[in-house]
Write a protein that binds this DNA or RNA. Sequence first.
DNA 1: GGAGTTATTATACACCTGGATAATAGCGGC
DNA 2: GCCGCTATTATCCAGGTGTATAATAACTCC
Lengths: 204, 204
Amino acid sequence: MSRRSFHRAPEGERRQELIEATLDCISEYGLKGATVRQIAVRAGVTAGLVRHYFDSKDQMIAEAYRAVIAALTDKATHVEGDPVTRLKDFIAINLTEPVADSRSVSLWAAFISQVRVDPVLAAIHREGYLAFRNALQDLLSDFLAFKGRPAGPEECRRYAIAINGLVDGLWVEGCLAGDLFREGELVSIAMASVEALLGLPIES
Amino acid sequence: MSRRSFHRAPEGERRQELIEATLDCISEYGLKGATVRQIAVRAGVTAGLVRHYFDSKDQMIAEAYRAVIAALTDKATHVEGDPVTRLKDFIAINLTEPVADSRSVSLWAAFISQVRVDPVLAAIHREGYLAFRNALQDLLSDFLAFKGRPAGPEECRRYAIAINGLVDGLWVEGCLAGDLFREGELVSIAMASVEALLGLPIES
DNA sequence: GGAGTTATTATACACCTGGATAATAGCGGC
DNA sequence: GCCGCTATTATCCAGGTGTATAATAACTCC
C-alpha cells in the first residue's frame, strides 16, 4: 500500500483553503459537524495537516470567524460615490446575494451562539459590529449633510442603531425564509423604512 | 459500592427539567457542549434517563427549541389592553429582560444555525416566525384602525415585516452588547422608530 | 405489607473527537 | 542529479460521544 501523492501548496493559499473548508462544514453540518477530519476531507487533505497550519482547532475557528465578518462587512462598508448612492447601495448590498444567503446567516448564527462561551469570539464580534455600525453612522452623517439637514453625532448614532437593527433583522428574515418574500421585496421595504426613519426621500 | 438513591419524579416534571437543563447547557457551552452526559449532570440525573424520556437526543433538542420559541413569543404575543398599550408593550417586552438577555440570544442563535442542517428545526422555526409576525400584523392593523387610519392587509404586512425586522435586530444587538447602550435606550429608539415608520405618534 | 410496575442507575459498546508522532513525498537550491 | 527542508501523510492515543441493555430502587395498588 503506497502513500497518497499530494501537492505542496504555497503557505497562504492552503490556509485560505482550510478556512474556506471550515466555513463550508459549519454551514452544512453546524459547528459540531465541523470536525477536523470533515474539514480536511472538504479541503482535500488529511486531518493532520490542520495542526501544521493552526495551533489548535479553536484558533482555526477564530480565524474562520474573522473571515466571515470580513465577508459580511467589506462589501457593505466599501460603498462609493455620492451619499445617496452609497446609502442605497449599503441597503441593497446587505439584502441581496451574496451577503444575504442562507449560508451566511448559518455561519453568522453559529458564531453568535458561541459569543457567550468564547471570549475570543466575543472580542471579534464586538469589533466587527462596531466597525459596521460606525461605518453606517458616518454614511448617515454624510447623507443628512448632503440633503441639507446636517445632524450631530448623537442623532446620527441613534439613526445608525435603528437602521443597523432594521437591516440586520431583515437580513436574517430574508436569509432564513427567502421564499416568504417576493423578489426585491425586502430591499423595497428597507428603502421605504429608511426614508420614513430619516424623514427624507433617498432619491433626488 | 451501593447504588445511588433517587427520586421518582412525575412524568411531565422530569421532561421539563431535562429540557431546561438542555437549554442551560446550550447557552453555557454551546450546542456541541450540550452532551447527553452534561445535560444529565445539570438535571441531577444519570445519562441513561434521557433516553427514557426521549426517543433520541435529536428529539430532545427539537423539543428544547420549541420551548425557546415559546418563551420568546408567548410574552410578546399575549399583550393585552387597547391597541396603543399593546403596541407599546410589544416593543418594550421584546427589548427588556427576560426576553432580551444574552442567554436567550445564545439559544436562538444556536438553533438558527441548525435550521439549514435539520429540516425538523427548520419547520419549527418557520412556524414560530410566522406566528410572531402575524401577531404583530394583527396588532398593527388594530393600532392603525384605532388611530383612525385603517390599513389593508398588504400594507399591514409590509409594516409588520419592517417592524419585526427592526425589533429583532435591536433585540440581537442589545442581547449581545447591552453595555454599549444606555438604560432604556433601545426601547426608546425602537418606540421613536416605529412612530416614524408608521408616521403616527404612539401615545394619545 | 407484599407484588407488580417502571423510573432510574450502572455498565458496556462501537464509533468519533482533537491532538501527538514518525515516516515520506514534493520541491527549491546548488 | 542530488541534498536538505518541510509540507503532507499515516498511525496511534486517551478521552468523549450517543445509544443499548440489565439490574435495582421507588412508588402504587390491593
